[in-house]
Amino acid sequence: MSTENPIFGDVKAVLFDLDGTLIDSAPDLAAAVDKMRIDRGLPSMPLDHYRPMAGAGARGMIGLAFAIGPDHLDFPALREEFFINYANCMTQSTYAFEGVVELISSLQVQGLPWGVVTNKSSRFSEPLTAAMPLFNSAKTIICGDTTPYAKPHPEPLLEAARRMRIDPAQCMYVGDDERDIVAGLAAGMSTVAATYGYLGKSNDPSLWGAHAVINSPMGLLQLLK
């Protein structure tokens, strides 16, 4: 899409999804669920097996590890076991995607405040972001349980805009999942789909209705020129 889209001409703040957009948490998510397999005497699976579903959290990880869904009787217990494992390892191998630190620095130089809107619950989002210096400059961090709703509902994004005291129409939202774009559009924000995260083979970001698509974090700066 054109980098001269006028929709980005009045952006006063940039909001990001967390996993798959700013940080690569797939190694720790995979380790948490793979430990469950190993503890049961099942063979370990490689990170590449888990990565495409890392953005789907417990549902995605447990589905890949044990081929069961949320409607299975064993799912709640497996989910809590996964949560415990993840809490114990979530800062071990998680890192910011290449270019994210430079992107955030550039936003600060331009005087553009930024924040995070994630469906990850505060149980994990708060300690994880507190452990990473990257988030020291974030103006707000909205978790999956900050409001009564989660994406694709627009309320988490609207709450972020309220906390930053910026009109939603002057906010840009960047995410790597269709629900991010749906939420951003419903909130009246300009939207950007990030393709460098956890896209599965069946996902086509060009069909999500985003105002632009970027293939790297630094690609966002071209939209803000």
Rank of each mutant, 00 (worst) to 15 (best):
Y86E: 02
P133R: 13
F83T: 00
E98D: 15
P133W: 14
L107Q: 11
L103F: 03
T94S: 15
S121I: 04
I104G: 04
Q92P: 01
V100R: 01
S106Q: 14
L134D: 13
F135M: 10
P127M: 03
S93R: 05
P127N: 06
A87L: 13
I84S: 02
T94Y: 03
Q110E: 12
C89I: 15
P127Q: 05
N119I: 14
S121D: 06
T118Y: 03
G111V: 04
F124P: 13
S93T: 01
A131I: 07
V117G: 07
I84D: 03
Q108H: 08
A131L: 07
M90I: 04
Q110H: 06
V109K: 10
C89S: 12
Q108N: 15
M90Y: 12
E126Q: 14
V109T: 12
I104C: 09
E81V: 00
L128S: 04
L112S: 05
F82N: 00
S106R: 12
N85V: 02
E98T: 15
Q110P: 00
P127S: 05
P113Q: 10
T118W: 05
A130K: 15
I84G: 00
L128M: 15
L134F: 11
G115S: 10
S121T: 13
A96R: 08
V101P: 13
E81K: 02
A87T: 09
K120G: 08
E81S: 05
S106G: 01
F97V: 06
M132K: 11
Q92L: 12
F135K: 11
W114L: 06
N119G: 12
I104R: 05
G115I: 10
V116L: 12
W114P: 10
A130Y: 06
I104V: 15
M90K: 03
S121A: 13
I84H: 00
L103G: 08
S121V: 06
N85I: 04
E126V: 15
A130V: 01
G115K: 09
R123W: 03
S125E: 02
V116P: 08
A130S: 15
Y95I: 03
E102R: 05
S122N: 06
Q108L: 03
V116G: 08
I104K: 06
P113N: 12
Q110M: 14
I104Q: 07
S105N: 11
S125F: 02
Q108E: 15
N85H: 10
L107G: 10
I84T: 07
T129K: 04
T94V: 04
E126P: 00
T118A: 04
A96P: 12
V101R: 14
F83Q: 01
S122T: 11
I84N: 00
S93L: 01
N88F: 00
K120A: 05
N119Y: 10
E81N: 03
N88Y: 00
G111E: 05
Q108Y: 01
R123M: 11
G111A: 09
E126S: 12
G111S: 09
V100H: 01
K120Y: 09
A130G: 05
A131P: 11
K120H: 09
I104S: 06
P133Y: 14
F124D: 13
L103N: 08
L134W: 10
M132A: 10
F82L: 05
Y95M: 08
A130D: 15
Q92V: 09
T94I: 02
L107A: 10
N88Q: 12
V109M: 06
V109G: 00
T91A: 08
A87Q: 13
L107I: 11
